[in-house]
Amino acid sequence: MTRPAQRRRTLSLRLLVVVGAVGGALALLGVSGLADTLVYYRTPTELLAEPPPEDERLRLGGLVQVGSLERVGSEARFAVTDGVATLPVVYSGALPAVFAEGQGAVVEGWLGGDGVFVGDLVLVKHSNEYRPVGEAG
């Protein structure tokens, strides 16, 4: 037990078991459908399929539909889409500088009874793509 060679053999067996357990855990997580459970935001399709209670605060995420953004005074109206369903959003406040049509956004707020999402915080969700100016993705 005190010799390094012996310790190495014992330890490599133990490490092998740990690596096996981590691999098994990763495989289990892969098939468990966990991706749909811990969500930072919900998509318009999900919100329309399962309307939340009216006073529940939640986050709506998706792409800002091209051509939907209009500003009236300090109020902004736009639509958030996931390609399948679209939800109209009303937001009063300053939009982030990077906010643009066709880009990802997450809106915090409530889904009103009239089907309009009332937001009080807009976050821009940028993609993992990095392209220079003037070169379309």
């Binding site: 133990r14 096996g20 098994g24 997580l29 966990l34 459970t37």
Partner: peptide
């Protein structure tokens, strides 16, 4: 179910690591 699966994965990793160290 996904949460219970996460817990099984957690038990697996925590158990194996604890046994190892």
């Amino acid at each position: 179910w996904p949460w219970l699966a996460l817990l099984v994965a957690y038990d697996l990793v925590a158990g194996a690591t604890s046994w190892a160290v």
